Measured scan of single mutants.
Amino acid sequence: NRLGIIYEIQGMKAVVLTSEGEFLIIRRRKDMKVGQQVSFENEDIYNV
């Protein structure tokens, strides 16, 4: 599992900021809110 803070939500995608200072786009889940810490898997990351 990886951890990140939700920075922005766009439709079915969420932008998270990881503890390494990396911004990633992941698959959104219904319970996500901006500012929330979430765990996610590598499979949830969109390749940009």
Rank of each mutant, 00 (worst) to 15 (best):
N1D: 09
N1E: 11
N1M: 14
R2G: 07
R2E: 03
L3Y: 14
L3Q: 06
L3D: 08
G4Q: 01
G4H: 02
I5C: 07
I5W: 12
I5Y: 07
I5G: 01
I6W: 00
I6H: 00
I6P: 00
I6M: 01
Y7C: 11
Y7A: 08
Y7I: 13
Y7V: 10
E8S: 14
E8N: 10
E8W: 15
E8Q: 13
I9D: 00
I9T: 04
I9Q: 02
I9N: 01
I9H: 01
I9S: 01
I9W: 03
I9P: 00
Q10S: 15
Q10R: 14
Q10T: 06
Q10K: 12
Q10H: 15
G11W: 10
G11V: 06
G11S: 09
G11A: 10
G11F: 09
M12L: 04
M12G: 11
M12I: 07
M12N: 13
M12E: 15
K13S: 07
K13H: 13
K13Q: 06
K13Y: 13
K13V: 07
A14T: 05
A14I: 08
A14E: 00
A14P: 00
A14R: 00
A14F: 09
A14K: 00
V15C: 13
V15L: 12
V16E: 00
V16D: 00
L17V: 08
L17G: 02
T18P: 01
T18L: 04
T18R: 01
S19E: 08
S19T: 12
E20R: 09
E20N: 10
G21Q: 04
G21T: 02
G21L: 04
G21P: 01
E22T: 13
E22Y: 14
F23N: 02
F23P: 02
F23V: 14
F23H: 07
L24R: 04
L24D: 00
I25W: 11
I25M: 13
I25V: 12
I26P: 00
I26L: 11
I26G: 00
R27W: 14
R27I: 11
R28C: 14
R28A: 04
R29V: 05
K30F: 10
K30Y: 11
K30T: 13
M32S: 03
M32W: 15
M32N: 02
M32E: 03
M32R: 01
K33Y: 12
K33G: 04
K33C: 08
K33F: 06
V34S: 02
V34T: 05
V34D: 02
V34Y: 05
G35K: 03
G35I: 00
Q36R: 09
Q36P: 00
Q37R: 10
Q37D: 05
Q37N: 09
Q37Y: 08
V38W: 14
V38P: 00
V38Q: 02
S39M: 08
S39K: 11
S39T: 12
F40T: 03
F40D: 01
E41G: 11
E41S: 14
E41D: 11
E41C: 14
E41Q: 11
N42M: 12
N42D: 12
N42F: 12
N42H: 11
N42W: 13
E43M: 03
D44F: 06
I45D: 05
Y46D: 11
Y46F: 13
N47P: 08
N47K: 04
N47M: 08
V48L: 06
V48Y: 04
V48R: 05
V48T: 12
V48A: 09
